[in-house]
Design a protein around this nucleic acid. Structure first.
Lengths: 122, 122
DNA sequence: GTTGACAGTAACCATTGGTAACCAAGCACT
DNA sequence: AGTGCTTGGTTACCAATGGTTACTGTCAAC
């Protein structure tokens, strides 16, 4: 097993897909695409994320080597988050994905509307 | 709002990202890439998925127009799932992503190991 | 009549995601 | 001395989701 097989549940590739598949991870990477941000800035960019969940996400990403976390001994505290080379290499695939999402959004919503109408007619 | 903005929590693009971000959706699309399959075949290909969850995933994908579900009035029953053009158009972006996952798996696991060792040394 | 295949469903439990409230450190001001 | 302000979280709690196991319906074949 060299590159992993995403269909085997016991293969670690699955773990990677789990992380990428995480909604917040994708958004955080998008937020950090243009440079480092501090905690509250990430929070502001990624609308609607609870601080607890953001902390979890950032720690998991740090653990996986996708970003670095640097604490400045200041008051008030300042913590900067920045993508590593590994994290930055993910921006490409993710951009592909969000592009798809944004261009096909209309089709999906239309399909969903049709489905709802059919349910209503029953 | 034409294409949507994934960073606004109230924007429907978020909904699309949620679906794409779903672990099982990605794997199901991969499984159906080469043609239609029946329920149990999908289940076998996507190792480790519980039938309930697979049903939920497939229904949601049908609702979003990513695949079609055709029931054959037979006994034993036969249900075929097949990607729509919309669903097939997702295989590209997803392949990009799984490629990334499989090639960078080593780096991530290495980073994770280092993190664990550091925690242990404390 | 009972066994077997297929495609689920039902009931239940575990894990996760999310909310609201609070905390710690240091500085400025009173 | 005490109060308030800031940032970057943590804690306790609750709801929603994900997952597991067991069961169901139908009809053909034995």
């Amino acid at each position: 097993m060299d590159r992993g097989d995403a269909f085997d549940p016991d293969c670690p590739t699955r773990v990677v897909l789990d992380r990428i598949g995480d909604k917040w991870t994708v958004l955080v990477i998008g937020a950090l695409r243009d440079g480092s941000l501090r905690f509250s800035e990430v929070r502001a960019r990624v609308g609607g994320v609870a601080p607890k969940v953001l902390t979890q996400t950032l720690r998991a990403m740090e653990r996986d080597g996708l970003l670095t976390r640097t604490v400045h001994a200041q008051v008030p505290p300042r913590v900067d988050y920045e993508l590593t080379a590994l994290g930055a290499s993910l921006t490409g695939p993710i951009a592909t994905l969000t592009d798809w999402a944004e261009t096909h959004l209309g089709q999906i919503l239309a399909s969903r509307r049709g489905y709802d109408d059919a349910a209503e007619a029953r």
